[in-house]
């Protein structure tokens, strides 16, 4: 793993040539995008003038000959089409620059951190897998995932990507959006074999007891039975659900509980974990889009790119933080 000081050195040396190229490329794209905006605005102005002309009081549409009527309709269609084309072209240009930026800037940062890591800006974890992990117990009908980073750190395979999932529905001509998850999903190979499902969720999900003179019965929840663990600090931070309580304790050994508390404090966000089929899925929420270029603001300054470094290091550090390269429990 590279330290932040090493990253700073990399930024001040080798990275500067990538940064200069990226700034040049951005100017090129911004010029093209502005030109498109200009044409789009021009088309809108033509259409507005056209509409004003048609709505002049003395003007009578019925008196126009068929040729003028056809011409008017054609001008209108052409205007609307041009606006659509300009906006589509702008979108395409933005995507092109985003691809360039990710393949040049983000890729080099990833390779600097660990040259064995693979980065695929246009790939992610598919919706079926995200849905089957079931970390959120909320339906979604819109989903996208990109910026997949994947590799093997010593004995542990890890991949992580950005995910956005939400539920969208039309309600009286209004779009209702119910967000399910925005952030990073990390999938890591766990160092023990297990078959069931164990969930470690923020503690607010812990309200599942029905008390009756201390004889309270644990309700079965969507994620399985609520498991009360011995570590009081861990219990304050998380609620654990599982379909097999011995397996849950096999996974969440006393040392792993401590390590998870430390990791949660380091991340300082409401993390969720699922242990499924000998894999760990870890969801870290982020409000903003990750690894996206800023067309009109700071692009490759240190404060921007060091964020990428922190996000990647945070994701990779789970392997060491949870001691996943210790393979003494029968799993290679």
């Amino acid at each position: 793993m590279k330290t932040e000081n090493e990253f700073k050195d990399f930024f001040n040396s080798q990275f500067q040539s990538y940064a200069a190229d990226a700034i040049k490329q951005r100017s090129k794209y911004v010029r093209k995008i502005f030109l498109n905006y200009f044409y789009a605005i021009l088309s809108i102005l033509v259409l507005i003038s056209f509409s004003i002309a048609l709505s002049i009081k003395n003007f009578n549409w019925e008196n126009l000959s068929i040729v003028y009527k056809v011409l008017a309709v054609l001008v209108f269609i052409a205007g609307v089409s041009l606006i659509a084309i300009f906006f589509m072209k702008t979108r395409k240009l933005k995507n092109e620059f985003s691809n360039y930026y990710k393949n040049k800037i983000v890729m080099n940062i990833v390779k600097f951190i660990d040259k064995n890591l693979e980065y695929n800006p246009n790939e992610g974890i598919n919706a079926q897998e995200f849905s089957s992990v079931d970390l959120f117990n909320k339906p979604f009908n819109r989903y996208f995932s990109d910026d997949l980073i994947e590799g093997t750190l010593d004995k542990t395979h890890i991949k992580f990507c950005e995910i956005h999932a939400w539920y969208e529905q039309e309600n009286n001509d209004k779009k209702d959006i119910d967000k399910v998850f925005d952030g990073l999903l990390i999938k890591v190979d766990f160092n023990k074999n297990f078959k069931g499902k164990t969930y470690v969720l923020p503690d607010k999900n812990d309200k599942t007891y029905t008390y009756f003179f201390g004889l309270g019965e644990k309700k079965n929840t969507h994620w399985g039975e609520l498991i009360k663990l011995e570590d009081i600090e861990f219990e304050k931070e998380f609620a654990v659900f599982a379909d097999d309580q011995i397996e849950a304790r096999f996974i969440l050994s006393t040392s792993l509980m401590r390590r998870l508390i430390d990791y949660k404090r380091k991340v300082d966000k409401k993390i969720r974990l699922a242990f499924i089929n000998s894999w760990i899925y870890l969801a870290i929420p982020f409000k903003e889009r990750l690894f996206e270029p800023n067309l009109f603001g700071r692009l490759v300054t240190y404060d921007v790119v060091v964020q990428y470094y922190h996000i990647i290091q945070l994701s990779l550090s789970i392997v060491d933080e949870l001691n996943l390269n210790t393979r003494i429990w029968g799993k290679e």
Binding site: K192, N193, I246, E247, A248, R249, F250, S253, I328, W329, G330, K331
Partner: peptide, 9 residues
């Protein structure tokens, strides 16, 4: 080791 860890759990 695995079975010891399971027994401990």
């Amino acid at each position: 080791n695995e079975v010891e860890e399971q027994i401990s759990a």
